[in-house]
């Protein structure tokens, strides 16, 4: 990393912070510090300009009205998110990163167009544990999902994984990636449960992979969650 301190932007936590989303920023920050890098979380509030100088930008989940409010603000500051910025969105954050999303009121909103994803409300809310498979370096992805949105990926985005249990994007795929921009329906928060995903984002920001980090607590939780959902699936 060129600068000495890595700045992790937590975008609009007051409206996009429904699912413990600040946890993702905290996870990234700690994983950097434990490896000896300086890192800090920079919250960017609604009404404030989004600085273009941050290394990473995180968007969390939020309710319908809050999501529209967030999208309107971020559209104004779209240019801050330069092509080499690392951006990660969860749930409403994923939808805002897409090109367009439709609210419960049937109104279409423009997203930021950083992911080739369009979202419409589905028929039923997906509220459950979500498990997806993904090739290395990610491996199995686990989290909790709570959303109504059905997201369709266009040609410019790849899914993050394929659903084993739960709903995800709604067509068997889960999440989306374009370049260094990623979105997912996994919360819990996603990066606490999926350290490989956290390290992938950090590797994007650093320009190279980071040394491994052993956290037995995290391994234990992953094994427990993956076996618990498998057990429920087969029973």
């Amino acid at each position: 990393m060129p600068e000495s301190t890595v700045h992790i932007g937590l975008l609009l936590p007051e409206v996009l912070g429904t699912y413990g989303d600040s946890g993702n920023a905290q996870v990234l920050c700690r994983r950097l510090r434990w490896r000896g890098f300086d890192a800090e979380v920079v919250p960017v509030g609604l009404g404030e300009p989004v600085p273009s100088t941050l290394d990473m930008y995180l968007l969390g989940g939020g309710e319908d009205g809050a999501q529209a409010l967030a999208a309107a603000h971020l559209r104004k500051h779209r240019r801050a998110l330069t092509p080499d910025a690392v951006v990660f969105g969860v749930c409403a954050g994923l939808q805002v990163l897409g090109t367009r999303f439709r609210g419960l009121d049937g109104v279409d909103h423009d997203g930021l167009g950083l992911l080739d994803v369009t979202t419409e409300p589905g028929e039923r809310r997906a509220v459950a544990e979500l498990v997806a498979t993904s090739p290395e370096p990610l491996g199995p992805l686990t989290g909790f999902e709570n959303h109504l949105g059905i997201s369709k990926l266009g040609a410019d985005s790849e899914p993050l994984g394929h659903v084993v249990r739960g709903t995800g994007n709604g067509d068997g795929t889960e999440g989306a990636v374009t370049g260094h921009v990623a979105g997912t329906y996994l919360h819990g928060p996603a990066l606490a449960r999926n350290p490989a995903l956290a390290d992938l984002l950090l590797a994007w920001a650093a320009g190279h992979p980071l040394p491994p980090l052993e956290l037995p607590e995290v391994d234990r939780l992953r094994v427990e969650r993956l076996t618990a959902t498998r057990r429920r699936r087969t029973s």
Binding site: Y19, G20, G23, Q26, V127, A128, E129, F144, P189
Partner: peptide, 8 residues
């Protein structure tokens, strides 16, 4: 069922 709140 959702424990995300632990992070809040």
């Amino acid at each position: 069922r959702d424990l995300s709140w632990l992070w809040d």
